[in-house]
């Protein structure tokens, strides 16, 4: 049994009516709350890409044998990448378009690297729902704008892989990449 003296000490309030116990309660609940929230961090963060998945996030490609009018399909982050050596006719077709009329206005120049405007590197992932468009391999349907055609919902991309028709909202994504030599590109 606690003596009345101790009880009084516990119940003793400061002038503005705050007891010591109020402070302890708030401190304890706050600590438990912050601790509980902190415990969520590893639980949520574990779902993000792990170190080995992130380590795969660059791909080196040798394009020395890529002839004009040819494409290669590479893999970057387990998704297809299309690298195309554009023909002069394709470059001309891309540059003839009035950019302001496009759904996602971009020029071919903005979508390629300086000094290599004839090499178009895009992700082979339709910006609608992620299907792989056709057009990179020989004999595949290139759609009515001569670039890529997505068979899932009929999006057509032009020779600069810009969206021209169909439900996709954006141009095929240009990944970050650089030319490390004249014939080698590193994606990612």
């Amino acid at each position: 049994m606690a003596s009345t003296g101790t009880a009084d000490a516990h119940e003793a309030a400061t002038e503005d009516g705050v007891r010591r116990r109020d402070f302890i309660e708030i401190a304890a609940v706050s600590a438990a709350g912050v601790g509980g929230l902190a415990a969520l961090i590893p639980l949520i963060s574990q779902m993000a890409p792990s170190a080995d998945v992130l380590a795969e996030s660059s791909t080196e490609l040798d394009i020395s044998t890529l002839e004009e009018g040819q494409s290669i399909k590479a893999v970057f982050r387990k998704q297809p990448v299309f690298v195309r050596h554009l023909t002069p006719a394709e470059i001309q077709a891309a540059n003839d378009v009035d950019v302001s009329s496009l759904r996602d206005p971009q020029t071919l120049e903005e979508r390629t690297e300086d000094g290599h405007h004839n090499i178009l590197v895009v992700m082979g992932v339709c910006t609608h729902l992620g299907c792989v468009p056709l057009g990179a391999a020989e004999g595949e349907n290139k759609g009515e704008y001569g670039g890529y055609f997505c068979p899932c919902h009929g999006s057509s991309y032009d020779t600069a892989a810009r969206i021209r028709k169909g439900p996709a909202p954006k141009n095929l994504e240009v990944p970050t990449y650089e030319f490390t030599t004249d014939t080698t590109i590193v994606i990612g």
Binding site: M47, A48, P49, S50, V53, R77, K78, Q79
Partner: peptide
């Protein structure tokens, strides 16, 4: 990306 734990 978080749901998939990767890019695909």
């Amino acid at each position: 990306v978080w749901l998939l734990g990767g890019f695909a």
